[in-house]
Simulated assay, not measured.
Amino acid sequence: DYDPAYSQSHEPVRKQKTAEGHAVRAVYMYSAMADVAEEYQDKELMEACENLWENITQKRMYITGGIGSSGFLERFTTDYDLQNDSNYSETCASIGMALFSLRMANITRDSRYAEVMEQELYNNILAGIAQDGKSFFYVNPLEIKPRQCMPHTSRAHVKARRQKWFGVACCPPNIARTLASLGQYIYGVDGADIYTHLYIGNQTDIPVNNDVVQIRIDSMFPWNGNIKVKVQGVKEKIKLHFRIPSYSENFQLYCNGEEQELKVNNGYAYVEICENSRIDIQFDMPVAFLHANYKVSADVGKVAIKRGPIVYCLEEIDNGPDLQCIYLSSKEAHVRKSRSFPECFEIELQGRRLISKSEGLYSSDGLSYSDVNIQAIPYAYWNNRREGEMLVWIHEIIG
């Protein structure tokens, strides 16, 4: 019963246009394809990389960055097949997708690749490790009822809490490796052009021509969009490129205190400097309410909450059981410092809760609702307080 698509050997790589087979194996191979395409300037191979990346991000990837929806063979399935409570979305697959996107960003210098890389890092990858660093998720669902995660069922692979270790223990060390190598994701360099992909606070030395430029970024990103960049060691003209996130509003760039007219190329605002300089970047990150393509049957009539790169979710500890009975009824959102995770922001929303009039399994009784406050936390933080239900895609009441 072996299917060659499982190992991406069903046809020559240059002819592949859809992501097939084992998700981790696939994106590792695509990363290698991108490396070879760049090294040998192989346009046909690069076109295959672009096609595969587009297929994943536009038709086969969860809003959290999870890929590989099938628990059976840990694989891609078909376009728009993105069920939420039995998906696989292996942590290692998202790490591989970040590696693939990093290569595409540095090769093409197109910001959309860096944005997906950021989506992976802040959501599905970060969810794979507990806040104390001592337990891990191999599988990353977008909806969970702990009592339904039963052995010897179709949800046996889904765990209601992070595990201390696994028989096949690829994910824990892979997360450690990714966090330890986080610096490689922040910048891209092309001669005298320096690209800032991510606004993570850091201090680094970057070789530029025959000199070394020191860059320091101070920020509280992703919780606010106030970024301070200090550049030293500049002896010749260099060009600094700063990614304009698609979710940002009122993006402004200042050089040595003077606001710059935005010059943009492929989603990056750039400025040329000939001396040590201070760059200030400011942008707003309003709460966004996102809907999936209508072909994603699992998400029809539902909404997901996102602020900046962070996808939010509901947990039972904040909102009570039976999260599927909660409907979002207003787009008004109150962003505040979290009471449980001091370093992050949570979002308070208004909604309604479905009230059952009958205890029977099926009933012709009408529906009624009560008003409720909804509290949402970053998806990556779920299951850090206690075991319970979790939900990313929320029912929505129109009007």
Rank of each mutant, 00 (worst) to 15 (best):
Y2W: 11
K15A: 03
T18F: 06
T18S: 14
H22D: 12
V24H: 08
R25E: 03
Y28I: 15
Y28M: 12
M29S: 15
M29Q: 15
A32D: 06
A32C: 03
A37K: 04
Y40N: 15
E44S: 14
M46E: 15
I56C: 12
R60Q: 02
T64M: 09
I67S: 00
G68R: 01
F76W: 02
T77H: 00
L82G: 00
Q83T: 14
Y88S: 11
S89V: 08
A93Q: 07
S94N: 01
M97Q: 15
F100E: 09
M104T: 07
R109N: 13
S111G: 05
A114Q: 10
E115H: 08
Y122M: 04
N123D: 02
N124H: 05
L126P: 00
G133K: 07
F136D: 00
V139C: 08
N140D: 01
L142W: 09
I144N: 03
C149S: 06
M150P: 15
M150S: 11
R155V: 04
H157I: 12
V158S: 01
A160L: 02
R161W: 11
R162S: 04
N174E: 05
N174D: 06
I175D: 00
I175A: 03
T178K: 02
L179E: 09
L182C: 07
L182T: 14
Y187A: 01
G191T: 12
G191D: 12
Y195K: 01
L198K: 03
I200M: 08
G201Q: 08
D211H: 14
V212Y: 06
Q214G: 04
I215P: 09
S219A: 12
K230G: 10
K230R: 12
V231R: 11
G233I: 14
K235W: 07
E236G: 05
L240C: 10
H241Q: 03
R243I: 02
C255G: 06
N256W: 00
E258N: 05
E258V: 13
L262C: 13
N265T: 11
A269E: 00
E272Q: 09
E272P: 10
I273L: 09
C274S: 14
D280N: 12
M285I: 08
P286D: 14
A298E: 08
A304T: 15
I305M: 09
K306L: 12
P309K: 05
P309G: 04
Y312A: 00
C313V: 07
E316W: 04
I317V: 14
I317D: 08
G320F: 07
D322S: 09
L323M: 10
I326K: 03
Y327Q: 13
Y327I: 11
E343H: 15
F345Q: 05
I347V: 08
R352A: 09
K357R: 14
Y362A: 13
S364Y: 06
G366S: 10
S368K: 06
Y369S: 00
S370W: 12
D371H: 13
N373S: 15
R385K: 15
R386Y: 07
L391D: 06
V392E: 01
I394E: 09
E396Y: 12
I397V: 08
G399S: 10
